[in-house]
């Protein structure tokens, strides 16, 4: 689906991280956790290609003034890293964006009642909020959120409000445990005897560590990947990643935008990547 979205709110939630709410067609309410949108930052040719962002949240927006009709919204959570995200952060209420989505596959929710361990690094939390919102309906959910410092651990109160038990870790010790969030995750798996399933999104190094933990302990693990995307619909073949059996002789490339971005960790190749 392609639509014009009007920005309802665009605010810096932590230094360098922004949360943007925009109008969306009602179909967007059916977006699955883990799906993403491709946003055209402006109508000019620089930046030229769209930028992909996970769906952070969808819902009904109730304007503050009385008598106004509620209307569906889409939210993204983004980190300013370059030209396109910088321009996004300069936009204001009532500005218009061109959006494609929802795109890609979502997370598989797994059996009801089973413990869900969701792991996010930095802005990797973006697609996990909508996931947590879904999962708390029928399962106990624990969030393991990591970042370099406390400024990189986002929206924890929102997760807590859903009833998610949150664990945090920072590399500089400014919030929660000092060190990597994967250590905290292992602590929980030790305590429960490797029960439940893992859903993770974040920097590649973190996903690789999480995939290794899941493999070693035979815990089903899903990861949401990134790839450099030009189209988001399986046409440019720019976004591919390697399947587990990939080799120079028997290449096995998977399309992140259509087959992913969520994959079972076990189907991907991790060593050397």
């Amino acid at each position: 689906m392609q639509f014009k979205a009007m920005i309802l709110d665009n605010a810096e939630v932590s230094p360098g991280y922004w949360r943007m709410r925009m109008t969306a067609p009602a179909e967007m309410l059916a977006a699955k956790p883990g799906q993403f949108v491709m946003v055209r930052v402006n109508p000019s040719i620089d930046p030229l290609i769209r930028r992909p962002f996970g769906v952070f949240d969808v819902g009904m927006h109730q304007p503050a003034y009385t008598g106004a009709v509620a209307q569906p919204y889409l939210e993204i959570l983004y980190r300013v890293v370059g030209k396109g995200t910088g321009m996004l952060s300069d936009l204001h209420e009532n500005d218009i964006l061109d959006v494609l989505g929802p795109l890609g596959s979502g997370f598989d929710n797994g059996p009801a009642g089973e413990e869900k361990l969701i792991v996010g690094g930095g802005v990797g939390l973006a697609p996990l909020y909508l996931l947590a919102k879904e999962l708390v309906k029928d399962s106990p959910v624990r969030l393991f959120a990591g970042g370099r410092s406390k400024d990189d651990v986002l929206c924890i109160t929102e997760f807590e409000r859903l009833g998610v038990e949150c664990y945090t870790a920072t590399e500089d010790g400014s919030l929660g445990e000092c060190g990597l969030v994967t250590k905290v995750l292992e602590g929980r798996l030790d305590a429960t005897g490797n029960k439940g399933q893992i859903c993770a999104c974040g920097p590649h190094g973190m996903l690789k560590a999480v995939a290794a933990i899941g493999a070693k302990r035979s815990v089903k693990t899903q990861v949401s990947l990134e790839g450099y995307m030009a189209c988001g619909m399986g046409a440019c073949l720019g976004c591919v990643c390697q399947g587990a059996e990939h080799s120079a002789e028997n290449p096995d490339y998977r399309c992140v935008c259509t087959e992913g971005p969520v994959f079972e960790a076990a189907v991907l190749k991790w060593e050397g990547n």
């Binding site: 030229l48 450099y228 030009a230 073949l237 720019g238 591919v240 990643c241 290449p251």
Partner: peptide, 12 residues
């Protein structure tokens, strides 16, 4: 199978 990644980069 095509080339390894990164396969794409935007330029002005």
């Amino acid at each position: 199978a095509g080339n390894p990644t990164p396969r794409i980069v935007e330029t002005p």
